[in-house]
Amino acid sequence: MSVKVVLPSAFEKHTSGTREIQSQAANLVQLIAEIESSFPALKPHLRDADGKIRRFINFYVNDEDIRFLGNDKYEFKDGDEILVIPSIAGG
């Protein structure tokens, strides 16, 4: 099983320009762990002082906010496209 993960341009300088990865992660927790181990330079920027993922970072699965799908409990499906968008705009 594999999912496609699209990273935002704001991550670029911490990922040596990588914008897209394939991941075998089964859920959001595993995906974040994988991103952190693949891009160690990104890791300190992803979490706040309490070690939590920063609240402005949003995850979408096939265009749906992952919080509507159960967040950490959502099991990724083969071919899912995961979109990471920091600090949504709008309003």
Binding site: P8, H45, D48, R54, F56, P86, S87
Partner: peptide, 10 residues
């Protein structure tokens, strides 16, 4: 630019 590329905040 609207996002900090250090802490991804607005």
């Amino acid at each position: 630019l609207s996002i900090c590329d250090d802490c991804f905040s607005p």
